[in-house]
């Protein structure tokens, strides 16, 4: 939603005829074109193996497209300098399907990591991080290491790590895959709240029950190597 009179802000993500293949394999994604507006909310869905994770990795610039054009925050990504890439990554929050927590750090340290690598002093963010952990139900796991935590707990830690910087865009790959219904609903409420405060949300999932809670949310459906968009 745009405030009346405000200048139309540019898309956060824009794909034009993007194609991708891994190595010499077949083309997994063909002619993908879409854009993600600021403060928008969308699901990326489709059967397993159709390329949801791949699509998110393209947005994250952890994969290069084999053809087509990707722009992020209004800038063509083919000639990004390393400092610009870092700047862009600080505006994005990611929840990986396999969490990617650092095993030698505690939950607290993992969640605080995005703030720490920006060089911010711990005294400035400690309270904030602890509050987030309590809210997300990890208050008694603050000093636990990932290896001692359940799948759902690790997933929540991964989500907290993505949220902590209040990114412009949040990419979440199956964020509720390991959570029971109550917790999943609670997290979705969190995503919705974050969205209201201005973060664009992209959730990759094949959890139909999850999507049904959000009637009228944009769905980007992958199938047959192509993308179909239900507005």
């Amino acid at each position: 939603m745009q405030a009346p009179g405000s200048k139309r802000r540019e898309d956060l993500v824009r794909f034009e005829n993007v194609g991708l293949r891994y190595g010499m394999g077949p083309e997994i994604l063909k002619d993908i074109s879409f854009s993600i507006a600021p403060s928008s909310f969308q699901f990326v869905t489709g059967p397993s193996g159709t390329g949801k994770t791949t699509l998110l990795r393209l947005i994250l610039l952890s994969l290069k497209p084999t053809r087509g054009l990707i722009s992020l925050f209004g800038q063509d990504v083919t000639q990004l300098s390393a400092p610009t890439l870092t700047k862009f990554r600080r505006r994005m929050g990611v929840v990986f399907q396999d969490f990617r927590l650092l095993d030698h750090l505690t939950t607290y340290e993992n969640v605080a990591l995005p703030l720490r690598v920006q060089g911010r002093s711990e005294s400035g963010y400690k309270k904030e991080v602890v509050e987030l952990l309590q809210w997300i139900g990890l208050g008694d796991r603050i000093l636990s290491f990932p290896s001692t935590m359940s799948g759902g707990e690790k997933q929540r830690a991964a989500i907290a790590r993505a949220l902590v910087v209040q990114p412009d865009i949040l990419l979440a790959d199956e964020p509720t895959g390991n959570l029971d219904g109550v917790l999943a609903r609670r997290l979705l409420r969190l995503f919705a709240e974050l969205n209201r405060s201005g973060t664009a949300i992209v959730i990759a999932t094949h959890d139909l029950a999850l999507m049904d809670q959000f009637d009228g949310v944009r769905r980007m459906v992958l199938g047959g190597n192509r993308l179909h968009i239900d507005e």
Partner: peptide
């Protein structure tokens, strides 16, 4: 390298 990758994703610069 996996740690380095995660650090990149959470916004760490190369010099950091």
């Amino acid at each position: 390298r996996e740690i380095i990758e995660v650090l990149h994703f959470v916004g760490a610069s190369e010099s950091y």
